[in-house]
Nucleic acid binder design. Structure first.
Lengths: 338, 338
DNA sequence: ATGAAAGCGCTAACAC
DNA sequence: GTGTTAGCGCTTTCAT
């Protein structure tokens, strides 16, 4: 069993042309008015010879790959894993295959990934874009390859996207901590120029300002990606500083986890010594000794909407940009004190 | 900018044949003795016209897709997410694209996934096989499509695989609990016939038997996949039973997490009231109020070895089956009492 | 109701 | 050194 069965093999076996076989196996026998008996014979032969249509040949012919590319920062991060899973399920329903790739927030890797997928004639993209990837998106635009951004977007680029209202999310979370009487609320975020990062930052700052606390410089801890040693230093420094932080708001799930580990290591008690507000979701928020309050993103809806928008675009049902801003939900637990 | 540039377009622009363009852009100008100037012109034109080789056409021609398929239970489960990430990175190094899919431990979904990927002319598979998928693997074998199993394998099927010594893992973990003086050690596992499940079960039972405790019936909690209500009932029942369990060994990460949540809800103190030993890895094992002991699988090595074996097979360097059994590592923390 | 044939983009054997 | 051409497996138009 070396070689795969092709349409031609079946045609030969049944004694008809490949055209007929093609019609029948694509269930288009009616419109092609194929004889019912011939059709049956073809189907039987296909089954008997265990025929599998060659999607590569189909794609070459049709110009459609029936595949979409999904670029996230890291598929092993549960945040993206869950998003990816939703996208996978949703796309499968429409007969599409999904090809995932991790960019590690790197422009270079994102570029390579995108090229690979473009070479594979991907029909569309769903992307959580890394910093500085605007030109890559502009290229997609120029090349007329539909795409939808998730999680982040670029202010100066008109695209479709599905994100949450990040400003509101941190504004409200900070507000809750303030309501609970916290005076020195720290904010931990990544250092980058991505829209979602900036919005979360703005939301936090604005909330403090609106409560007569414009002096935030010493409360903010900006750290680099993929550098946990740096994070440790920086955050430990903040907690030990004379500022005497009494609450902290983490702006992503990875930061939250790293932060909580350090909190344990330092023997800091939550919420007695420190109130904590996290972001995204994690099993750990339930398992930490003090149940963690967090900003919950509707990942399933984000994935579904992104797929919907992409498919509308790909099928030309919709050729305007769609911009969806969803609300995050504050899940209140004991960790933000009282 | 509607249509993509093809070899022919470049050939036309430069005024040469497509053959030359093909040689040059595949860096085979030497062996084809292409004029250096012509080569330069071709490269320039390719760049100028932003040429991207059509991988679909290449695949059709060559019969190789330069893609491998990876089937796991659920890409959103960090265990598989991490494994997937390793496989992605490793494959990318060799110029291959990876297509992931989640089977949800369902034979049907696994079957559909496999067909989709076969239609796409995938060059090889890495699979964490679901229960009852032996026929699917036999089909791959017959169709001469290379594959490597990970995490699980089938005793009655000769295949390549990379797994851990599951018997030893639970045997040793149970041993540690016994050493710590635990008398009634419960075991929580999924109810299925997969080899890794059975081995973990056997390891636990054997350890108790070797310590003169052959009576394990009342200590074992077997639960169904994707049924957390069922788990809750069953496990809560076990903890409340007159048996008075003083330790519990969970046999997967998902069971561990569900179990720990219940332990918290029930107000059981670890390790005072109950010692706990978990499986796989999770951020939560560090963040639980009592650091959790666990059986750690070398995920990175599993992924790397699987990719290596698959590529050796695909390049015909190796046409025998490779069976790798790695050791898991016991990470000892406070949760297993003293 | 069915078949012949062109062509999707690319490679490679062969001719010149 | 370079061009011509067949063909990978499939779809689809046009004859018959």
């Amino acid at each position: 069993m070396r070689k795969k069965t092709s349409l031609k093999d079946i045609a030969g076996a049944v004694g008809v042309s490949t055209a007929l076989v093609s019609y029948v196996l694509n269930n288009r026998e009616k419109e092609a008015r194929v004889n019912a008996d011939t059709a049956r014979e073809i189907r039987e032969a296909a089954k008997r010879m265990s025929y599998h249509p060659n999607q590569v040949a189909k794609s070459l012919k049709s110009g459609k790959s029936l595949a979409i590319g999904v670029i996230v920062a890291d598929i092993s991060n549960p945040f993206f894993g869950y998003l990816a899973r939703t996208i996978e399920d949703e796309s499968k329903k429409k007969g599409y295959t999904v090809i995932f790739g991790s960019s590690d927030e790197s422009m270079k890797k994102s570029q390579r990934l995108m090229e690979t997928l473009i070479n594979r004639q991907i029909d569309g993209f769903i992307i959580a874009p890394a910093e500085g990837t605007e030109p890559q998106l502009e290229y997609l635009e120029k090349a007329n390859i539909p795409f939808v951004l998730i999680d982040r977007y670029f202010k100066n680029l008109e695209t479709s996207y599905v994100v949450i209202d990040n400003f509101k999310a941190t504004y409200q979370a900070t507000g809750k901590l303030l309501e609970n009487g916290k005076e020195k609320i720290a904010f931990v975020c990544y250092k980058n120029k991505l829209q979602h990062t900036k919005e979360r930052y703005r939301g936090y700052v604005q909330a403090l300002k609106d409560h007569g606390k414009p002096d935030v410089k010493k409360l903010i801890c900006e750290v680099e990606f993929n550098n946990s040693a740096y994070f440790r230093d920086k955050f430990e420094g903040l907690l030990n500083a004379p500022t005497k932080v009494d609450a902290v708001l983490f702006s992503t799930n990875t930061l939250s986890i790293m932060g909580l580990k350090l909190v344990i290591d330092m023997g800091i008690r939550v919420p007695e010594d420190l109130s904590v507000f996290c972001f995204d979701q994690s099993e750990s928020y339930d398992l930490f000794y003090c149940p963690i309050s967090y900003v919950h993103q509707p990942l399933e809806e984000i994935g579904q909407r992104a797929v919907q928008i992409l498919f509308d675009r790909m099928s030309n049902k919709q050729n305007t940009y769609q911009q969806v801003i969803l609300n995050a939900e504050l899940v209140m637990r004991k960790s933000c004190g009282k």
